[in-house]
């Protein structure tokens, strides 16, 4: 599982450089994000612009990342493709995350 991450102005943005977060990749995803966030205390944004498909195992892995951050920090998501957005909406998990249509400023141009 590949990622591109950058840190600026208190925000760590992690772009998932894969087309799928599915049952075959869920554990790799979780461990990969954990590595990317090692020692980071600030805001966390997952950029899902390249992800075209997520299943319930992939959704569970994103929830696991949310839990990794603890109660004090939320997990922010941005650039959800229509199929990914639909899975979050159908399962009501869109209420659990902060979802941005685009990258939050000031990271619009990063990566």
């Amino acid at each position: 599982m590949k990622f591109q991450s950058s840190r600026a102005d208190g925000i760590c943005i992690i772009k998932v450089d894969e087309h799928r977060i599915d049952a075959a990749g869920a554990i790799d995803f979780k461990e990969g994000v954990r590595t990317q966030l090692d020692g980071w205390e600030g805001r966390v944004v997952l950029d899902l612009s390249l992800v075209e498909f997520i299943d319930s195992s992939g959704l569970g892995a994103v929830v696991a990342v949310r839990k990794m951050l603890g109660a004090e920090r939320n997990l922010e998501l941005c650039n959800l493709s229509p199929p990914v957005e639909k899975v979050f909406r159908l399962t009501r998990m869109d209420r659990v995350f902060v979802i941005h249509p685009n990258r939050p400023e000031p990271l619009r141009d990063a990566v």
Binding site: L59, G60, R66, K67, G70, A71, M93
Partner: peptide, 14 residues
């Protein structure tokens, strides 16, 4: 609560 969020159980619903 955050620590109790479900990481599974969505499959048959979908």
């Amino acid at each position: 609560a955050v620590e109790d969020l479900p990481e599974g159980g969505f499959g048959w619903f979908l």
